[in-house]
Design a protein around this nucleic acid. Structure first.
Lengths: 146, 146
DNA sequence: AAGCAAAGATTGAGGTTGTCAACTATCGTC
DNA sequence: GACGATAGTTGACAACCTCAATCTTTGCTT
């Protein structure tokens, strides 16, 4: 149990606060692209040139398969992704970005990876410290989840 | 425009990654408390002893008033919050936590403010650096939004 | 080879969230 | 007292989400 004076606790709360404050930016971006927030998020989970099984997407979105069916239906109806049957296992369907899908995704990625002003304008030593600490955290996560 | 080698850019992506990875924890907590994710989030926005107008809650949740009506309906039906008419302006309704509402919210807050292992287990100098950088970011945000 | 449990995806039912337009009641002002 | 603006609600409709049931395909077992 983390102590209440552990800097990790305050850091965690501040992390929430920063992400929360940036939610409108994400929602505005989705709207700009003519997508819902969930659709944008799903699109981001499919990398160009990589075939993603439906159930894998469900895992990335933390929801179940039946929900993904609907989301994929709508993305496919917009022509942003396609379902391909997998040759090694005809139960699974592989999702692939289409040309338009790649373009929209790339535009979204370009904007989403742009840090918000409050991060971008930090003094260089803070930015580096932030990056290094988060690298360590993500790295620690990867260790334990294997 | 932030350069692609700016550490702020990588920090921002890592920040996303950390929050994304912790989403299941939040969803599990909500389920444990018998709430939807949105309901839990709304409950968190109402502090004990503070009266919050509906439209203010809508602002905090980044959605419109009509949406809040439904969310509040369900929280009220569960007995977690109450609507009180404001005496100074009879159009506005003030939301207040009930006893059970306070207890559930306090339990939720206790768990949500607990940093995840990958943050809690960072070496102390990383935790402090993380906290300090995020403090600066949130502070910078508060400056410009006023 | 036949049988069978399990997995991937879909469908349908039911509830929640989100947006938009219309509506009511109240406020502030002129 | 009339007017425009604001706070909240309602209704219509789409999207999201979960659960149970179904279908096909697979891999295992015997």
């Amino acid at each position: 149990m983390t102590q209440s004076n552990d800097p990790a606790r305050e850091a965690w709360e501040l992390l929430w606060e920063v992400m929360q404050a940036n939610k409108p930016r994400f929602m505005a971006l989705a709207q700009e692209l003519g997508l819902s927030a969930v659709q944008l998020h799903a699109l981001r989970m499919i990398e160009p040139g990589v075939e993603v099984p439906m159930s894998s997407l469900a895992g990335k979105l933390f929801c179940d398969n039946s929900n993904v069916t609907g989301i994929v239906d709508r993305l496919e109806a917009r022509g942003l992704i396609e379902r391909h049957p997998a040759e090694h296992d005809r139960r699974v369907k592989l999702l692939v970005l289409t040309g338009p899908g790649e373009r929209i995704r790339s535009s979204a990625t370009r904007q989403m990876t742009q840090p918000p002003p409050e991060i971008a304008a930090l003094p260089m030593e803070h930015k580096i410290a932030l990056r290094d600490a988060l690298r360590a955290a993500v790295h620690a996560r990867a260790e334990t989840s294997v």
